[in-house]
């Protein structure tokens, strides 16, 4: 499972917050050009605590609070990146990334191209995404497809502490801008998609066992979360765990692929699996129309058309804003995913 771990790493049980914190700490310790800033990330350590202790350990100049100005946060990060620093900025909620959208799409993503490599923006934009925490319209969104549409940036979404740390270190070391979405429902533990079952934490979980030091995970490689023969489930972030629960509930021998990175995308892993199973289910929490599922469907039908035994199905959030009171009617949870699996498995 570990992709590029240095030999015999010292392991530690971490939740996703601690894993992200550890990634930042490792890079800040290694590279004086790495600095962290964003709203409330400094003294306080971030509203989700991902930057806790970093200012105290590395200094005020390495981890500091920024004005409530997402466009300014990303804009100044682009300038620092052009200079040669490796800023890692936090946008407090993905729902608040839109003021920075122009800076990400027109500047960070374009700088290398338009200057023909003269200037680059090696920046990482971290942002908690997704629902399941009663966040309503303004603290639950999954805007990943807006970013996968933009040439020049990478879009990465981990589903567990181990991946979160390895992918974040990779993002920081990457010489291109990376949008790094953290499914906030997974910060403290995996989530089955059933809000009534007791909450789990990462304690004792295999993927919560994280090397203390430096390691990276390549973006180009999807992770086979569960190997199987009869159905391929393509998912990422929170939906990996919902898929796992739904597969368990339905007893189908499904292969769950955790994409980890949407751009770049590991198309080979997808094609290999769907060619084997002949059935494909796509899950995402984001709204359906023009969601990333549409891209996956297009690729799968193009590359696996003759292997397909059933139409490709997607289970997603509805095309509505994320409701507050009706969160679980909106969320593509255990029940909806199970129904979809059973239907796609009908002969």
């Amino acid at each position: 499972m570990p992709d590029q771990v240095s030999q015999k790493p010292k392991m530690k049980q971490m939740n996703m917050i601690q894993a992200i914190n550890s990634a930042l700490d490792v890079k800040m310790s290694q590279d004086p050009d790495v600095l962290v800033f964003g709203e409330d990330v400094g003294y306080f350590g971030g509203v989700f605590r991902c930057t806790a202790g970093l200012q105290e350990k590395h200094g005020l100049h390495r981890c500091f609070d920024a004005p409530i100005s997402e466009g300014g946060i990303v804009g100044t990060a682009v300038g620092m990146g052009a200079f040669g620093l490796r800023p890692v900025v936090e946008i407090q909620f993905a729902d608040y990334i839109y003021p920075a959208f122009d800076q990400i799409c027109s500047e960070a993503a374009r700088l290398r191209y338009r200057s023909n490599g003269d200037f680059t923006a090696p920046i990482t934009i971290r942002s908690p995404m997704g629902g399941g925490i009663h966040g309503g319209t303004s603290h639950s969104q999954s805007p990943e497809a807006l970013f996968t549409h933009i040439a020049g940036i990478k879009t990465v979404i981990p589903s567990n502490p181990y991946d979160a740390k390895g992918l974040l270190i990779k993002a920081i070391e990457d010489n291109d801008p990376v949008v790094f979405f953290e499914p906030k429902r997974l910060y403290n533990g995996p989530f089955s998609g059933d809000p009534h079952s007791p909450a789990k934490n990462w304690g004792g979980h295999e993927l919560g066992l994280v090397p203390e030091g430096h390691y990276t995970i390549d973006f180009e490689k999807a992770r086979i979360h569960r190997a199987g023969n009869d159905l391929t489930i393509l998912c990422y972030g929170t939906m990996v765990w919902v898929a796992e629960a739904a597969v368990e509930a339905t007893g189908v021998d499904a292969e769950i692929i955790d994409l980890r990175s949407l751009s770049p995308l590991d198309l080979d892993a997808i094609v290999k699996s769907v060619t084997k199973t002949g059935r494909c289910l796509i899950l995402h929490e984001a709204t359906r129309t023009s969601g990333f599922g549409a891209e996956l469907i297009a690729e799968v039908q193009q590359h696996c058309f003759y292997a397909l035994e059933k139409p490709i199905v997607r289970v997603t959030g509805w095309d509505t804003p994320y409701p507050h009171a009706l969160e679980w009617e909106y969320f593509p949870g255990l029940e909806r995913c199970s129904v979809a699996i059973n239907r796609i498995m009908e002969d």
């Binding site: 804009g75 100044t76 682009v78 300038g79 620092m80 990146g81 800076q103 027109s106 374009r110 700088l111």
Partner: peptide, 19 residues
């Protein structure tokens, strides 16, 4: 590098200065 989106370079300059 000049983009053509107006004003976006202003915060880059400040980021550069901060660096």
């Amino acid at each position: 590098s000049i983009g053509a989106s107006l004003g976006t370079q202003m915060s880059h300059a400040v980021g550069w200065a901060m660096a």
